[in-house]
Design a protein around this nucleic acid. Sequence first.
DNA 1: TAGACGCCTGAATCTATAG
DNA 2: CCTATAGATTCAGGCGTCT
Lengths: 394, 394
Amino acid sequence: MSSARVGATRPKSQIKVSRTGMSNFGSPRAPKRAMSRNEVVVGDSVEAMLGLPEASVDLVFADPPYNLQLASRLTRPDQSVVDAVDDDWDKFADFAAYDAFTRDWLAAARRAMKPSATIFVIGSYHNIFRVGAIMQDLGFWILNDIVWRKNNPMPNFRGRRFTNAHETLIWAARDASARNYTFHYEALKAGNEDCQMRSDWLLPICSGGERLKDSAGRKTHPTQKPEALLARIILAASNPGDLVLDPFFGSGTTGAVARLLGRDYLGIEREQTYAEAARARIAAITPLPAVAVAPAPSKRNEPRIAFASVVEAGLVAPGVTLTDAKGHHKAVVRADGALAIGPIVGSIHKTGALVQGLPACNGWTFWHFESGAGLAPIDELRAVARARLRDAAE
Amino acid sequence: MSSARVGATRPKSQIKVSRTGMSNFGSPRAPKRAMSRNEVVVGDSVEAMLGLPEASVDLVFADPPYNLQLASRLTRPDQSVVDAVDDDWDKFADFAAYDAFTRDWLAAARRAMKPSATIFVIGSYHNIFRVGAIMQDLGFWILNDIVWRKNNPMPNFRGRRFTNAHETLIWAARDASARNYTFHYEALKAGNEDCQMRSDWLLPICSGGERLKDSAGRKTHPTQKPEALLARIILAASNPGDLVLDPFFGSGTTGAVARLLGRDYLGIEREQTYAEAARARIAAITPLPAVAVAPAPSKRNEPRIAFASVVEAGLVAPGVTLTDAKGHHKAVVRADGALAIGPIVGSIHKTGALVQGLPACNGWTFWHFESGAGLAPIDELRAVARARLRDAAE
DNA sequence: TAGACGCCTGAATCTATAG
DNA sequence: CCTATAGATTCAGGCGTCT
């Protein structure tokens, strides 16, 4: 079981952290080396991703430069100066240059993704529309756009716009045909008052003790993302032991949360200073015990059981009459696992659909048997069969 | 005053509603005719917009086809069929065709916009990224992206994605240099618990009595937008008497709300059926009285008053000493309306900035005078001067 | 020690007008 | 176009200090 790889089985001292920069990453023509995990590579994102084996990554989180195009300085009403993102890495000559940059890194990320992998890209209105269009052009299949609503955003100081109170994430599969991507629907629902998790997430910005600062108290990275955001992403769309790639690693939130949650990570960061801060940050993380991060069991992942095997196992005898919950419809269990309604014979699903006049029906929940304590769905018999299957496997 | 044009001054019988289709709208070479208002034009959006005078529109709301790319029909868990958008107007051969369509209508809309006009475009993840990128390419300047959070979205029936619980609006000015666009910041703030309006709006979807239905109970239009959404947009970004253009008029929500709020509208709609439903809907609207829709007064729009004129009016005598709210700093009023601090002479703003060591200062709120009932800001004297100005004008 | 109070800060495309 | 100047403009939360 993959979650056995986390926690106590992977003591801190065995975490390999490369201090050699990007020496292992050459041009695309360089021989492919074995997959490296749990490293922070210092270097260019595109080059580094092209050095990875194709189809080797389970999940990508990317927080690319936003291309903010800030013209002048901004002061608060009290005349204090807003510490804006004016770093060189956020400067692009024009939209064409930003688009070319975006196409390059997205194509390289897509190449490294397994066919079942998905990608999350975060951005603001300055860049997210270009990013999304290019993703569609490259063949990514958008699954959702997600809104990170900030409960404590910076206000609009001039009163000329709406408070910019959110950022946007695009969640996409590698291809339109991908049907086997990881999405822990049930776990998210269980953790959300038993309601489906929506596309709008309310989370505070990264501040307080979580925010990395240097010895002088200045923030280490201007755009550090909150761990809660990464935790939701990683829990939703990956399994323990999966490899999470972050091509714009920055302060390393992705790596810190991946390690906490028993996932492997691979970070790429151009700035040596950020990479070093990220390594130290991640090294200080104690992974959660495996039991805390094991994927919740979900109906979808349960082994499939034929009704025939329920009959074969003696859990219900051939000849027994099943009914719907209200006893309106009746059908007889056949020895081959089909049901008979008079001359009509069909699966539990087909017969259930037939008597209701519907195109489809889940027979496991529609048909009931007399359990001794009243009517019960035959799904309960399936649960017993599954439990026996598990016992036999151990 | 422009708001005098609304309400009782414009009785229902005078609303001109064209029943002649797009006969007045020819090729761009056709002679420009007088601006038409409060009409629903049946025809192609691009052609109709190119027939409008340049720079004639104050606000654009556009709800273009979303290019949903639905592959097959979707059923709910109870097997009922979801009534999806599968109309011909939402079918495009590929992204290139959708992009070309989008460029055309956005360029035509931009041409019709006054330099001070703004545009709202609504979409979902299927199309909004392409729309936003093309808007930037055409020279629109994005002011905000706005998230319409639905408190009652359709659930995700397959449990393979997050509930798609929002749609995205892009709010943009015609040009990056536009500084004089309409934005009723104070009114929005006053209606939002005295907090600035954020970029995430929580509104229910259009249902119940608001939803247009035909005699058989089928919804008239598959994507009718809620009036509350349009009301917020129109109230935020237009003034009474302004012209609001909607190139994809559909069921006419834009027109109905514009008429209610004392704005003029111009709707363009390709389908005769929708246009007729929209006309009937709008005709049934009674505009609100002018006083209900008059723009709230804002400090920004008050006439400018020089401190010299406050002195000349005898509201404060030369030689009087002003202080800040805590009495730490002192300055003497000069006969010419400047302040003196020892040998230093400057405006109320410059001297206020100087004593605080700040680059700027609002002298009206910084400097105080002895009012008899304690210290009061000289802004109160300005208010008196303004009131006298108003009285004199009447 | 708990609460009051003030200071600081966050991915920001953040003014209007006169001359 | 430009420059100079008037003057309008912020919310939530963390943290340190004071009472």
